[in-house]
Design a binder for these strands. Structure first.
Lengths: 243, 243
DNA sequence: CCAAAAGTGTTGACAATACACCCATGA
DNA sequence: TCATGGGTGTATTGTCAACACTTTTGG
């Protein structure tokens, strides 16, 4: 608030504040999301997004990063560098049957990695193809959160450089293109994609001596690192009709 | 959250949850924001964004609309139709010196209107030019919220149809163009702007018999209503270098 | 030598800009 | 009839998509 209203906390119902995470990755030419199997009611046995309560001296961003480390078993260096993005805040009074819970949702973009070990308090953590996750009924309003996160990532790929968040620290332009093609479920022309990326200052920066084989054969591809830029002007528009 | 963690609310500090509103309008060729003079500590006498606590059975969106009506003295028909957009959620533990307050920020786009009457609990409400508001030190972290809201609106004008939110129910293309020029602080070519808007299906729809004089003289302009579309494909990109 | 993947060049279609011009109205 | 703002036409300029082609590797 923070306006001129009377300020008696006890006059207001206490709220629990949590974060929910849509941890996304590109794996085997499909978007995947990290889901956790719930161990207790409500929604026991159902899949849910990882998340948890804010600690007393913690911002939502800090809580998101902590939960990412605690619940998902992702390696620490990755948690530190991961791209976290607020999606929106969900505050429907009935979104949790037990009490009033307001949740700040984040999308986290991570490169493809080995199956996470369910660490700490999480029962089971698993990478689930997004199509499968959207078909299933997730706990609480997590269907909605996941759909919003997916749509936000799809849209922001056009105007921002965040696609590099799906790539390892050093990547080829082919890998970056595969990210776009997977997230948008469309095909892109390689020469044109290449030109557009390289023409945007600060999107990627070449690794001087770097080269790597990708498919086993073929010419080794030059390696790039994510650049300093965060916005993408002009944008990389997705084609209207796929393929 | 909503994961498998133990669920004892008393184990967690109680949070207050509020909404803060950046109510924006275009007036006299400048973006203005609605500010409220604080009547009590902390930040007594300082200007702040309107806002307030969530009620027990209310979502953040509902609270935002209610506060808009209560605090700003805007006419009711306008509050019902206003375009509200979540900006992000601010959760720094020290953002309010008295207690832990998590705030969901919204941007509200309204057409130009007569000076609001400070209604109800609000001490004073006033339209302040954005440049002036950004130069002043607002209460709490409202500087930051306002900057984020402004940047979000600037960016979303490119990719969405929300510019019509700054216009009255029926408007001319000249007025719509003035919105873009004001928000972006740039000049646009009238014929080209016109074509782009009309070429985007669902952006605006012509009012059959409508025509209105704008500057007192000149040819009366055709009237348009906001269309059904919400996205803008292809986008209306702002020029890199103004003027 | 062939397949596969990276990287370069070229062309033509289309879109956007810039700007000239006409129209309708008030003073 | 002039100033002002709305609306239309058009040529030039870029930009982007499409696709042919070369390069470098493994088998």
């Amino acid at each position: 608030m923070t306006a001129a209203a009377p300020y008696d906390p006890s006059a207001y119902e206490p709220f629990a504040v949590t974060v929910d995470l849509a941890v996304l990755t590109v794996r085997a030419a499909a978007l995947h999301v990290l889901l956790i199997r719930r161990g207790q009611e409500p929604y026991a046995g159902a899949w849910a997004l990882p998340g948890g309560f804010l600690l007393p001296r913690e911002s939502a961003e800090e809580a998101a990063r902590r939960e990412l480390a605690e619940e998902t078993g992702l390696p620490e260096f990755l948690v530190d560098g991961v791209h976290l993005e607020q999606v929106r805040t969900y505050s429907d009074p009935d979104r949790d049957p037990r009490m009033r819970v307001v949740s700040v949702a984040f999308a986290a973009l991570v490169p493809d990695l080995p199956e996470p070990v369910a660490g700490g308090d999480a029962a089971q953590a698993r990478w689930v193809p997004l199509a499968e996750a959207e078909a299933a009924a997730l706990a609480f309003d997590h269907d909605r959160i996941l759909a919003d996160a997916r749509e936000q990532v799809r849209a922001r790929l056009e105007y921002t450089c965040l696609a590099t968040g799906f790539c390892p620290p050093e990547f080829t332009l082919g890998e970056l293109q595969a990210v776009y093609e997977t997230v948008w479920d469309t095909g892109l022309d390689r020469p044109n994609f290449r030109r557009k990326v390289l023409a945007t200052p600060g999107f990627v920066q070449a690794v001087p001596g770097g080269a790597r084989l990708t498919g086993g054969r073929g010419k080794p591809a030059a390696l790039y690192r994510a650049g300093a830029a965060t916005a993408l002007h002009p944008p990389l528009l997705r084609p209207e009709s796929p393929q």
